[in-house]
């Protein structure tokens, strides 16, 4: 069982990771690179009104950030993409391991896993990891100033955990109290409120940021759907397809 949790999570994560890499390359990378042209000042939205470079303060990391400035060659872009794509696999293998671990508990409790239920698990993951925190902290282009990083990370983690618990209650609690607690878990983080700056700002045009949010959700929904399908498929296969017959002598 332990090996199966790891093997299924790893395999499903790699399958979903391939799709996410492809979609990131086609959909979000072009917008990230374009946003960095506004961030670096190569392009200026409302030319003359914005001051390039002031919105994206990384403190000590400033020099090391934005690894592919426009003057850098194709080689560094290739290196940047390969690192980003490797990170996609790391993230999706991690989600695959968590999904696989949780599904193993459901299987042990007698719940049937199929492609269809796997897809539901994946969509629940998409809601918990993207929709729930995204309502408070929308996916952001580089160059958009935001509140304190640690505060946002803490809020994000709490919101994802609460939403994941809510998904579990919706799926498995067979009573109104469980459903009510689930709804409360979804709502409470937004009553507390995500950390935000008092004023909105940003160097990239709002239309670019809007396009980016839509594409980021598309990538995430595709990735989580495939992750759920793959995990469901792997867990629906027989646990031990070819048991080695052990000769046992009758005594």
């Amino acid at each position: 069982m332990t090996m199966r949790i790891f093997a299924n999570g790893l395999f499903a994560g790699i399958i979903a990771g391939i799709l996410v890499v492809l979609l990131q390359y086609l959909l979000t990378e072009p917008l990230i690179l374009e946003a960095e042209e506004y961030e670096s000042g190569a392009k200026v939205h409302f030319a003359g009104l914005a001051e390039p470079g002031v919105m994206h303060d990384h403190g000590a990391n400033a020099a090391a950030d934005a690894p592919a400035a426009p003057e850098e060659g194709e080689e560094s872009v290739a290196a940047r993409f390969s690192l980003a794509f490797a990170a996609d696999f790391v993230v999706y293998v991690a989600w695959g391991l968590i999904l696989s671990a949780l599904i193993s508990v459901a299987v042990a409790k007698g719940h049937k896993i199929s492609l269809q239920t796997g897809l539901l698990w994946g969509l629940a993951g998409f809601v918990a990891v993207h929709i729930a925190p995204g309502v408070g902290l929308a996916p952001e282009l580089p160059g958009i100033p935001a509140a304190d990083l640690n505060a946002r990370q803490l809020w994000w983690i709490g919101t994802v955990l609460a939403a994941a618990a809510a998904m579990g209650l919706f799926a498995f609690a067979q009573n109104p109290v469980g459903i009510a607690v689930g709804i409360a878990l979804l709502v409470i983080p937004h009553v507390i409120g995500a950390p935000h700056l008092a004023q909105l700002a940003g160097l990239a045009p709002p239309s670019l940021a809007g396009e980016y949010v839509a594409r980021s959700y598309a990538v995430a929904m595709a990735g989580w759907s495939l992750l759920g399908l793959a995990t469901g498929w792997l867990w629906s296969r027989p646990a031990d397809p070819a048991p080695v017959p052990v000769p046992v002598e009758d005594r």
Binding site: T28, E29, A84, A86, V90, G134, P139, L149, A220
Partner: peptide, 21 residues
């Protein structure tokens, strides 16, 4: 937050909507 990890995963963090920067 270390630059090594942040820079390597930068575009992925943005694409997958982890809080970044």
């Amino acid at each position: 937050e270390a630059a090594k990890y942040h820079d390597s995963a930068h575009d992925t963090r943005h694409t997958l909507a982890f809080p970044c920067h």
